[in-house]
Amino acid sequence: MAQHQVNYTQSGGLPVALTTVDKILNWGRSNSVWALTYGLACCAIEMMASGASRYDFDRFGTIFRASPRQADLMIVAGTLTKKHAEFIRRLYDQMTEPKWVISMGSCANTGGMFNTYATVQGVDRVIPVDLYLPGCAPRPETLQYAVMLLQQKIRRESANKSQKPKRLV
């Protein structure tokens, strides 16, 4: 029975755990960061690899969703071109708060090696970014580390962050 597993010497002798709203909400949010499949270029292959058999992203509670309405996290994996820029903004606007963005790979961070007329020089010109992930292309381990850092970040911030107005960029 469950009651025998309760340690009555702790928590004031009650089978109750006390916490704050912030902590319990952030615990839930940080352990079920559902990512939007935003594969744009080469990094998308590494993003798929991190979801596949060897690297197994599900361990972190990160499941890829195809719809922005169901996603908390947008992993911008690959080069964002000027033609595509309006769509990334629109999909970002469609995601529900709270939402986070990981910019994966050099192209998404700064334009990377594609210093050309057709490439947006960093997705942070279009949407606000929480975490920049260097590499071309970053290994799946790197992406997993980035998600772990993001979880840490989520746990630190206040739970009703969504009430605050979000920056334009």
């Binding site: 595509h84 090696m113 594609f114 057709a118 490439t119």
Partner: peptide, 25 residues
């Protein structure tokens, strides 16, 4: 064209060996 990154233009501005890593992408 949503992934047009201007590789052919880059090639015209790079020496031959410099362009090789771009073909990876």
């Amino acid at each position: 064209g949503y992934l047009h990154r201007g590789m052919e233009k880059m090639a015209e501005n790079m020496i031959y060996n410099e362009f090789l890593p771009t073909t990876d992408r």
